[in-house]
Structures are given as structure tokens and as C-alpha cells.
Design a protein around this nucleic acid. Sequence first.
DNA 1: ATAAAAATTTAGACTAATCTAAAAAAATAT
DNA 2: ATATTTTTTTAGATTAGTCTAAATTTTTAT
Lengths: 232, 232
Amino acid sequence: MYEITFNLKKLSFDLTSFTEENYLKIIYLLTERNNGNEVSTNDLAEQTQTKAASVSDMLRKLADKSLINYKKYQGVTLTTDGEKIALSVIRKHRLWEVFLVNKLGFGWDEIHDIAEQLEHIDSEDLTNRLDTFLGSPKFDPHGDPIPNSQGQMPSVVYHRLSEAPLNKEVAMTGVSVHSPAFLQHLDKLQIKLGCTLKVLEISEFDKSLNVILNNDSSLFVSYEVAKNLLVK
Amino acid sequence: MYEITFNLKKLSFDLTSFTEENYLKIIYLLTERNNGNEVSTNDLAEQTQTKAASVSDMLRKLADKSLINYKKYQGVTLTTDGEKIALSVIRKHRLWEVFLVNKLGFGWDEIHDIAEQLEHIDSEDLTNRLDTFLGSPKFDPHGDPIPNSQGQMPSVVYHRLSEAPLNKEVAMTGVSVHSPAFLQHLDKLQIKLGCTLKVLEISEFDKSLNVILNNDSSLFVSYEVAKNLLVK
DNA sequence: ATAAAAATTTAGACTAATCTAAAAAAATAT
DNA sequence: ATATTTTTTTAGATTAGTCTAAATTTTTAT
Ligand SMILES: [Mn+2]
Ligand SMILES: [Mn+2]
Ligand SMILES: [Mn+2]
Ligand SMILES: [Mn+2]
């Protein structure tokens, strides 16, 4: 009889599909970007590269599973259950990125698409062993924080280089764009996680910045670059 | 804040789906087990844990893509294209198994289900870097040979312990059953890859074998076990 | 050689995830 | 306050992969 109860419970706990995991992860990241405000159907359609109609269908489904808070036309946020799944996917994504860079020697511009696949591998044991194998890293190769095994995301305060005070040395801690083109551009400028930057001057003309890298060389970076360089 | 570039879109139709990859892999392994003879619909249904009707549908589809040789009611074999995909999947499966055991410390009885997922990760670069990282292993933790990056499967000659000559020391090189129960049973007997075995006697009554392990201790193994222990 | 059994394929249906087109609701502008 | 535009949802299809039930082909046994 206890077997039966267990089985019924298991049936109602329907596993989360690959697609559902992606929606939950994207809702998490977009909510974060929105400072905790509801995410809109259109934003989800853009990020998932699907149509708004498809998103509406999926939202009804995720709401039926109690993974999101959803009232028609009002946008969505994650429930506690939904956030737990989202954080697990993000944890796996970022741990695998560390593996790809630190153990296999990939560049930080080459790993995102592979991590998009690896983040769906379903084995808690694997995730935790991987974490240990990597030395329980706190940040991924882009400087993004890695949620712990209890599903807690460390809160990190970011500043943008474009808003940094003049003549103050700051450390580069992350990027807010992960496109290979941007990352490769940073490679060319020799700007990497942990380097120090000091803004000497901001051009009136194009908002480009004259900065000192590692207390050593001087270079100019565009506003576009400075806006997406996170420092502390 | 993050720029989010995800691809939710399913792999496009010219690519091979997870499901198709699984069918091709299973067709390869069953053909191997059949000494090169055609694989039947029912055997595939059993291995894929689906029904014969579903297999028929998939066979038509794989044949349309020129991945299998298929004439209705006649069974199937892989084409050169199909075999290439099958070997790539098997290579990835076995390399990941080596990773799980050698790097993450899993037991050989715990890895199959995880490797079933990892074998579908699509990145040749990743596979080859993983291979290098692992020291280009030639065999997986169960003693199965790993196809090389050119898609060639090393040919290995196997003998079963149940057929080994009496009083001749042989080395344990593999298993022909991969169930956790069997592998855990071997763990209890302290039988692992590379150990040596010498058959002293075979019981008339139940075909069980009296063997010397590592030129040291004496033990009895059932016919069921001896049949699935591969030696050379 | 024929009948019975087994294996395989076909027919028709279902679910998940997507689409386009149309309807409905909300937001914005006059 | 009303009209227009934008956003979101619904309606109705489509595709991949699966199912059950029925039909067909092949194999086996008499
Ligand atoms: Mn990433
Ligand atoms: Mn990252
Ligand atoms: Mn395996
Ligand atoms: Mn194996």
C-alpha cells in the first residue's frame, strides 16, 4: 500500500522536459535582469527564439505544474519549485563551463553552446562530484556566480566600468554580454577576469574611455565595451 | 545582468535526433552481437523499450535518410553513413564512462545511465579534447573498446571464462552484461578488469567453476557469471 | 502443402512543442 | 473618452515519436 502511494506521488511529479527547463532558466535570468519584476510573453518569445503564441501555450503548462505564477496578460515569475529547477540548471551550466575552460582548455568564447547541452544532464550525483572535482568554484569563466547545491544563488553586486569613478583602480569581475565576438574582442585587448582597470578620462565626443590596464599599459575602450564590463 | 543567447529550437531535420542516434547505436550493437547479421524489428523493440509498431515507423524514417539498409520484413543493417553516426555515439558513451570512473570516482556499476545522456552531446571538439584529457584510452571501464576519432572500432577477440581451458591462467578483459546487479556481484567477488583467473574444475552438477583469482585465492563462480566474464 | 503461429507493417489516434492567423485585452495617443 | 497600436491569447494545423488494434507477410509445424 505504501508502494502505491509512492507511485501515485511519482506520477503526479511528472519530470521536467528539456524545453521546460529552458523556459524556467530563461524566466529566472530575465526576472533577475528585470530586478525581480514579471517577465513578459514577448521577452520570452525573443529569448527562446519562438513565437509569442508558443510561449503562451508553455506558460499555461508551467502554471498547471505550479512552476510559475501566471495570470493571463500579467507576465510571469517563478514559484519556489520553479526557481529550484531554474537554479539547478544554471548551476550545471556554469559548473560545466568551468570544466570546459579549466580542464579541457577551451576559451571562454567557445563554451556557451556546449554548456547549453550539458546543463540538462540529469544526475545530482554527477553535478556534485563535478563540483568537487573542480574545487567547488564560486564563479564561472565569465564571472557569473554558481548557485550552491542547496539551490542558493550568491548575490553579487555589479558596477559597470562605464560608471566607475575616475582615477580609481577597480578589478574586472564579469561581463554582461557573453557573445563570442565581445569575448574575443576582450581577448585582443588583453582584458580578462581579475585584471585591474583605472579610468583616466571619458571622451566628451563618443564616451570612449582612456584606461590603465593592470597599472601598466594605457588603452582606449569604447562605451559599448565599458558598458558591458563589470567591475568592483 | 546577462545577455541571454539560448537555442530552444530543436535540432533541424537534416541532423540526427536523440531518438535516431539511439536507434543507430542499438542497431550497431545488436548487429555486432549477431555476428553481422540483420537485426529484427522485435529485437529492436525490446532494446529500445518501445513496441514493434514504433520500430517499424522509425525504420522507414532511417531508411529514407539512407542510414540503414531496410527491406520490409527482412531486418536491417547500417549503411556506411549510419555506422559512422553509431560509432560516434558509442565513442562518446565510452569516453564519458572513462571520465566518470577515472576522474569523478564513480563505480563501474553507476555510470551507464549518465553516459546514455552524455553520449548525445554534440561537439566534435569536445569529444576530442575529452579523449586527450583522459589520455586517449583504448577501453572503457567495462573493457569495451573505444572507437577512434576516425570512426574505426578496434576489433577485439573475446573468450568467455565458461569456455576457458582448465588450469590455464587467463586475464579478465571485459563483461558481456552491464547490469548494476552483475557488476556489483563481481565487486563482491573482487573480480575486476585485469585480474587473472585459472579454472581448476567445472562441476558436473551445476556447471559452476572452481577458480583461482590472481594466483592467490580460490573461489566458486556460477555458470551464469562465468558465461559473462570475458577473458584472454 | 496447408494451416497455425509468429513477426512485421499499416491504420488511426495521442502528446509535446511548435507554427500562422485571428480574436481579445491592455497600453498608448489623440 | 475614444481610437489606434501593441501585446497576449486562442484556434486550428503540423511534426516527431509513440501507442493499440488490425491487416499482412513470413516462418514453423503438421
Ligand atoms: Mn553560458
Ligand atoms: Mn557563463
Ligand atoms: Mn554503458
Ligand atoms: Mn561501458
